[in-house]
Design a protein around this nucleic acid. Structure first.
Length: 124
DNA sequence: GCAATGACGCTCT
DNA sequence: CAGAGCGCCATTG
């Protein structure tokens, strides 16, 4: 890896830029990031881009989940646990099924003042 | 260039 | 919302 992957990341900079736009305590979906990044329909590639990421990268990839509000983590428990742990640390609440309510924590671009805690106090 | 793969999304049931 | 099927675009062999 090393150089080859690094080159790919360069082409996906718009994707990383969008992910960085995701505020704390909020989560965005792959399709959303893809669309905003200028590649509507390339949701899969967003995951591919995040896959090429590293801990050294300044990209909150953990804030990117699928449209179900479920973390994917490539099937690796470490990734899933890390992603969930990081989100919970930011205030994101997970469902008993390990899912996030996109209606509450879903990223709302173009809209502000949307306070997750205010959108509907978690009853859990 | 073709075939296979993938951290997904949408539609129908 | 959940399950199954098809489509999506880019990377890799």
């Amino acid at each position: 890896m090393s150089g080859a992957r690094a080159g790919a990341k360069r082409g996906w900079s718009p994707v990383y830029r969008v992910v960085r736009r995701v505020p704390e305590g909020r989560v965005a979906t792959y399709g959303q990031v893809a669309a905003i990044a200028g590649m509507p329909g390339a949701a899969r590639q967003v995951g591919w881009a995040l896959n090429a990421l590293d801990e050294a990268d300044d990209v909150p990839w953990h804030r990117v989940i699928n449209a179900r509000g479920e973390v994917s983590g490539r099937g690796e428990r470490e990734i899933e646990g890390l992603q969930r742990a990081r989100l919970e640390a930011e205030g994101v609440v997970f469902d008993a099924r390990g899912r996030v309510d996109l209606g509450r924590f879903g990223w709302r671009p173009r809209t502000r003042a949307t306070r997750p805690a205010m959108a509907g106090r978690g009853e859990g």
